[in-house]
Every structure is written in structure tokens, then in C-alpha cells.
Design a protein around this nucleic acid. Structure first.
Lengths: 230, 230
DNA sequence: ACTTTTTATTACCAGCGGGTAATATACGGT
DNA sequence: ACCGTATATTACCCGCTGGTAATAAAAAGT
């Protein structure tokens, strides 16, 4: 009937005898298929029947692993959020100038946006979640926003970034990155790495202090009188 | 409801005109209510029943003005697109350097994004439209993208913009602007004009060939950025 | 081999929401 | 006053989709 496509994307149910896989692997397979379908068709148009069909099972079987559609949606989001949390922790641990941390953040965030779970951070609507889960999402979004603003403020403080409004600048940068999740397609002309690199450059070239490009550790570079630190 | 034209007027078409005008006004009212509700709740969660309810009519009455839900959705999008087309025509007519045109485009686009019809350009899913309407939307999106790229290329050609990849740069800028439609709220801390000005500055300061860091012209007032609107 | 637990299936329900007659009402034209 | 048209309402249909028994079939434990 329908070209199920090369369902070679590792469905544990495909071979009849390989049903002995671990439960978690099946759960993951459900999530991979679901996030793909949700992104492809949109959450509301995508049906659990089709998710199941692509996994060569039937809808009620999904309820062995998830409580319902909303649960699956939230899990997809959470996996994307986990990746973001991870690399932010890494950047924080590594330290460096504000500009340096911001650059790392932009690059990593851009690359995550080109993945399915990453895109789910911006393509899914929190209003489809329960109130409880929705609060978790909102809190996480605020946290990411704070990270952007903090790195920018750090950069202004340590002189690696010229004076600007951290709040607005964070909106500009994060918006540009978030939008990647809306247009990127894996089979497109541009690779994720190329995009990440280009965005890193374009989004920071205007912020870096002009006089000396490499600001190793020389604070009090050019403190504009208007910019009260912090 | 409306002041009817004086019957002493000789034009026998006056009642007809007034009636048609009343009809158009009602149509507009439906659209305003619909776009507002669609943005507030999301297209799928918003019901025609509630649209009608907010207009103090009942659902079938809507079918006097529109063929169905999808028709309303497309009209909302079209009204936003119309505004974009209008100011692009104005910018093209005015001429100037590439950088100048790009700045005007960014400012105008940002302001449109803060309106309901403008936000509908990026908040609504083309997959909810019929194939025919969806093609119209895709064509319009491509056209906007071409405009961004053209202004950038113009700027590179006339020397007002430093060398860069117009395609990527357009993605960076347009993405940042489109995202405004996702977070802006009219009752928030920032005005549309302030946002438009700030985005214009931040998104072009890195491109301008002369190092015009106009930190003085836009003194970023230290407004306490407590209210995280994301 | 028997039982228990996990995992899957078939069949079904319920509610929601878009859309459509059939019909009533307001209103301008004559 | 009368008619015709635009506009509105009530009542209804229908398809879709998430979710739920009831149950079958494997797997695992003994």
C-alpha cells in the first residue's frame, strides 16, 4: 500500500524472532519513530496508528511503553533538552571568556537544532502538554535564555564583547538559532557543521570588540560609560 | 450599528454599498477574532465554535463569509503577507544602498512580526492548508528569502556590506526576525518599535563595512531585564 | 510441563469538531 | 404591505483519533 520507506531505520520488531530486545531499546525506537513523524506531519496530524504502523506493531502496543500521546511528545522534548543541558554543562566547566563561551554555545546549539530531538525543542507546542509538563518546558526555556544572557554579560564584563543589551542580544541570537529547527533538512545542500560554523561567525562578528580580536585576558578593555557591569 | 448614509443622497446604490461595507466589516471582524484565537490556542485547538462565540454568533453563521476553517486560516496568512509585500515594494521604490535597504527591511519586518497577522506568517503551519494554498505560501516565503538575499548581495556589490555569503546571512537575519513572532507579546516589557530598532542594529552591525558600532546612537538603557518573556 | 508475567492483538467506545441541511428572521427594494 | 435576499439559528451528521477492555501469544521463572 504505502511505501513505508526503507524501514531499515532499525525497528526491533522487523524480524519476527528478534523480539527479545531490551525494553529500553524498543522504547527508544518508539521515540525515534514518533519524533520523526511528529516533525514530518505535525503533532496533531500525526496519529499513533501511523507511529505503530511504522514500527510494525499496532497502536495499543505503544501503551506498554508510554501512557499516551502527550507522554511521547514530552519525552521527545526531554531528550532534546537533555542534549542542550549536557553541552551547556560542558561549556560552563571549560570556562573561558564570555565571547568564547558564547561561541561554543552557538555552535553546539545550532548543531542540536539540526537533529530531530533538537528540533522538537522549537517545533512542538508546549500547549499540547499537560500543565505540569508545560511548566517544566517553560522553566527549561527560561534557563537557556538565562545562559545566553549570562555569557553575553560575562563577555561584556571581561571585555571580550562590546557593550550591548544582553537581553535583546540573546533574543537575536537565540531566535536565529531556533529558526534552524524550522528550515533545516538533512537532505539539504548544507551540512549541520557548515551551518553551525557560519552562524557562529555571523552572530558574533558584530559583538566582538573591534580593536583586538583575540582578547586573552585583558579586562578593562573598553568600558563604555553607559554599561554598568551586571 | 453604523451611521447609515443619508437617504437624501441621490445615489440609489448607497444602501447596497452600505450593506456591502457592513459585510466586509463583519468579515474583517471574523478574521481578527480568528487570528487572535488561532495564535492564542493554536490552530488545531481553536474551534470554530469558539470563534463564533466570541463574535456573539453561532458557527454556521461563519459560513456566510468563509468556506471553512482552512479558508479563514489562509486569509489570515494572506493579510500578513500583504503587509510584507507592501513595505518591500516601498523599499524597492525608494532605492539606496544594499545596507540601507536591508536595514529598512529588517525594521519593517520586525514590526510586522509583532502584529497578529504578521505573526501568522510564522506561527501557522502550511501543512494545514490545501495543496493549492500551500503552494502560494511557499512561493511567498521564497520571495521574501530572495529579497533578503538580494539586498545583501546589493550591499556587497555597492560596498556597503562586507563580503559574506548572502544565503547564510539571510538565514541568520530572517530566522532571528521570524522568531519574534513566537515570543513577542503585546503586553510585554518591550515595545515593537524598540525591538525593531534593536534588531536592526544588532543584525547589521557585523555586516557594515565601516566599523560603525553606533553604541552612542542607541544607548541601551539598563532596563532591568527581569521579565523573561519566552 | 505448568504458571506467571510481559507483550501484543482485535474489537470497540466516546468525544470532539468541522461541516451541512432545514429553517427562521431581519431588512432593503418596490 | 409584500417579496426576495442576505443572514442567522437549531439540530444533526460523520469521520477521525485517542484511549480502553478483553484476550491471545510469547518469554521467563519454577
Amino acid at each position: 500500500m504505502d511505501a513505508r520507506g526503507p524501514s531499515s531505520d532499525s525497528s526491533p520488531w522487523m524480524p519476527f524472532e528478534s523480539r527479545r530486545r531490551a525494553r529500553d531499546e524498543k522504547r527508544d525506537a518508539v521515540l525515534r519513530t514518533a519524533v520523526h513523524l511528529f516533525l514530518e506531519q505535525g503533532y496533531h496530524r500525526a496519529t499513533l496508528n501511523e507511529v505503530a504502523e511504522r514500527l510494525n506493531i499496532t497502536k495499543p502496543a505503544l501503551y506498554n511503553y508510554f501512557r499516551g500521546k502527550e507522554d511521547i511528545l514530552f519525552e521527545c522534548w526531554a531528550l532534546g533538552q537533555e542534549r542542550v543541558d549536557d553541552f551547556i554543562a560542558g561549556i560552563d566547566a571549560a570556562g573561558g571568556t564570555g565571547l568564547n563561551k558564547l561561541r561554543k554555545l552557538i555552535r553546539a546549539y545550532a548543531e542540536v537544532m539540526t537533529t530531530d530531538y533538537g528540533a522538537s525543542l522549537v517545533r512542538f507546542d508546549p500547549r499540547d502538554l499537560t500543565e505540569k509538563n508545560s511548566r517544566v518546558v517553560r522553566a527549561a526555556k527560561r534557563s537557556i535564555d538565562r545562559t545566553f544572557r549570562k555569557y553575553i554579560a560575562d563577555g561584556i564584563a571581561d571585555g571580550s564583547i562590546g557593550p550591548c543589551d544582553p537581553k535583546m542580544t540573546a533574543f537575536v541570537i537565540a531566535g536565529s538559532l531556533n529558526w534552524i529547527g524550522h528550515w533545516f533538512q538533512r537532505d539539504g545542500a548544507m551540512s549541520a557543521e557548515a551551518i553551525a560554523g557560519e552562524f557562529t561567525e555571523r552572530l558574533t562578528e558584530g559583538l566582538a570588540v573591534k580593536s583586538t580580536r583575540r582578547v586573552a585576558s585583558t579586562p578593562a578593555k573598553r568600558k563604555k560609560s553607559s554599561g554598568g557591569t551586571r
